[in-house]
Design a protein around this nucleic acid. Structure first.
Lengths: 221, 221
DNA sequence: CTGGGGAGAACGGTATACCGTTCCCGGAAT
DNA sequence: ATTCCGGGAACGGTATACCGTTCTCCCCAG
């Protein structure tokens, strides 16, 4: 599956365009996203843009000033810590809940893993990595849990994009490491009880943070 | 700081009105909330109503059909289980994170407790109860954690409103029980380590669920 | 009585326009 | 040079209008 577009509404496609621009770093952090300007640039009216901005706010990519102006989100190391803490809580829970279902059918995870093994850029690996985790959340059967996780995903994309842009990560090493770790996770789901899967996820995320090229440099202009 | 109103926007006030109607049960579950009809009724245009509906969707009080029509949320017992599971995860985490701050200053919790002791209706107790928990989330220092919890609060209000409307709960018993439990929680924060506070919150929530007059009757027309 | 089809009403998506507020920059006073 | 102030441009909040789609209900055929 690659499509996922299906966004017939201008609001959705406007959100897609802006999301892409923000995550790729084409829109500088702190930059004003004036409704009229964006609308003009995208060739639509302000209404869909307005909705798109609200969506992006929910995703954490945009923040509003007290007077209602939208800006590209600024990220601080503290923000990352918050995200990390929440992943560390939500994902092990999801793993425990999803274990029974994934024991019966881990084919979606397997497909993702196969795709990851073929990935040819860090960007691709990162996207598939997040997708892998989202599959576990989805398999948890708790729709709200998945929704909460998704509300964090935009910021995650943003962070990873910035980090990897700054540090030219090694594609091969990144990919192999990801594949190996995910392989182990799938095997756990197939053979170990839910509690073990939960703990493994926790360690996986701890390791993920360890591995990230985190530095407290300036927020990147 | 006491205000917090400041909602000059029609969108916000429209959301408030609708929220109140939904939580109080004046708007039946499944009822269509047509933009034009609501706008007409509230004496505003469709634009602010539209935004209000999106806000309420984020709060879980409204759901959209595939074609974009807004309906008052229908709740099933499974929905409640999801909420319960998430509280059971998020709140102990928040308690652990908030413990250091609350050890230094639990005055907000104390004030809430005093108010609760004076409450004269189940509705009041319930509102103050949720407020108590939200104070802990706020004290965790993790803004996103608080945001996640808040995104569940609307549904919680909705559930509790329905349950208590159906079962005429005893005000005095409810209040005394709540005060006692919250008293213990505050004391833990003052004297025990974060891990103990975390566990207590977990038990508190387990007890809360136990106590609720849950029944699998029809979804209540 | 039941199922299918069509017409009209209902509804949401979007464009455009207006208004009050906020923002920003330059000039004047210190 | 710095601060304060004012005015015009920029921006968001809202109202209104139009259009295509979806719903709904009734009528007709079986």
């Amino acid at each position: 599956m690659q499509g996922s577009q299906a966004s017939l509404s201008l609001a959705d496609s406007a959100a897609s365009v802006l999301r892409e621009e923000i995550v790729r770093g084409l829109a500088a952090p702190g930059m004003l996203l004036a409704e009229a300007a964006v609308a003009d640039r995208l060739g639509v009216s302000r209404v869909p843009v307005r909705e798109a901005l609200f969506s992006l706010e929910r995703e954490g990519l945009v923040e509003f000033s007290a007077t209602g102006r939208a800006f590209v989100r600024e990220l601080t190391p503290a923000d990352f810590e918050e995200l990390f803490t929440l992943r560390l809580t939500l994902e092990p829970l999801a793993a425990a809940l999803a274990a029974p279902a994934l024991r019966l059918d881990a084919s979606a995870l397997e497909r993702n893993l196969a795709d990851t093994a073929r990935a040819e850029s860090v960007r691709e690996v990162t996207a598939l990595d997040l997708e892998f985790h989202e599959l576990i959340l989805a398999a948890s059967g708790n729709a709200r849990l998945l929704k909460l996780w998704r509300s964090l995903r935009g910021e995650l994309d943003l962070w990873l994009g910035r980090l990897h842009r700054r540090h030219q990560s090694q594609t091969r090493a990144t990919r192999d490491q990801t594949v190996e770790a995910h392989r182990e996770i799938i095997d756990f789901f197939q053979t170990r009880p839910p509690a073990a899967c939960s703990k493994l996820l926790r360690h996986h995320i701890l390791g993920w943070r360890e591995w990230l090229p985190l530095t407290q440099e300036e927020p990147l202009a």
